Computed example of a mutant assay.
Amino acid sequence: MGLLNYSAGRTRVKICGLKTPADIDAAVAAGVDAVGFVFYPPSPRAVTPNIAASLITRLPAGVDAVGLVVNASDAQFEAIRAVAPITLWQFHGDETPEDCQRLAAGQPWIKAARIGAQFPFEDFSLQYGQANAFLLDALVEGYGGGGVPFDWQGIPQAWISANAPQVVLSGGLNVHNVGEAIARLHPCAVDVSSGVEISKGVKDHALMKQFIQAVRAADANASP
């Protein structure tokens, strides 16, 4: 369990943007490895630190509580940390490596990259070399949750092979394409939000279960 406990043959699953106790319970029952709490007020999936703190109490040991922030100020970050027991931070904005290290304050963290044409993969992974993982998302307006996949073929094979134990694949994943994504890229984990929603910010519990089942089926098909 846990998002970044890499093991060949078992892709970890993060479901992001959960907002209600029923969402949490459904995700846990489906076998999720991590849930993401969005601390970015413009997002339809945003929650307050106090709501996140209440939801996190429903998580069993071993399921990561991921705090997603976008260019948060020190004060905003500390307001989250003061009440919500986040176990893993996700920096989804324009934070520098120094920002990430300082704000995470010794806790594990992920740096998200918005992948467009000619994205500098090598430079990115070198620049953020102290990150525990790299989350690859689509380049869309806003910050994540756009439901748009990016061109996976644009990821250099040498880069993905070298970094797969640290790669969290996001961006437009759903029940229908997650199997192909795993077969092609073998990431440590996959991250879904809009792909398991019936409308922006409203999760479909049946789709969450089906998504995780699709991941497990892909893992089984990839086994020798």
Results as ranks from 00 to 15, higher is better:
N5W: 08
R10S: 13
T11A: 05
K14G: 02
K14C: 01
I15K: 05
L18E: 03
K19T: 11
I24N: 09
I24L: 13
A27I: 06
G31R: 04
V32R: 01
P42I: 11
R45V: 07
A46W: 07
N50A: 14
I51D: 12
A53Q: 08
G62H: 13
V63K: 11
V63L: 08
A79H: 10
A84R: 02
A84V: 05
I86Y: 06
L88W: 07
Q90T: 03
D94L: 09
T96G: 08
D99G: 05
A104R: 03
P108D: 08
P108H: 12
I110F: 11
A112W: 06
I115V: 15
G116F: 11
F121R: 05
E122S: 13
D137F: 07
D137M: 03
D137K: 00
E141M: 10
G144M: 03
G145T: 04
V148I: 15
P149D: 12
P149W: 13
D151E: 15
G154Y: 07
P156I: 10
A158I: 11
I160R: 15
S161V: 01
S161M: 06
N163M: 14
Q166I: 01
V167M: 13
S170I: 03
L173W: 06
G179K: 11
A181Y: 06
R184T: 12
H186T: 12
C188V: 05
A189V: 04
V190R: 04
S193P: 10
S194W: 00
G195N: 02
V202L: 15
M208F: 10
M208K: 09
K209F: 02
I212K: 02
A214G: 03
A217H: 13
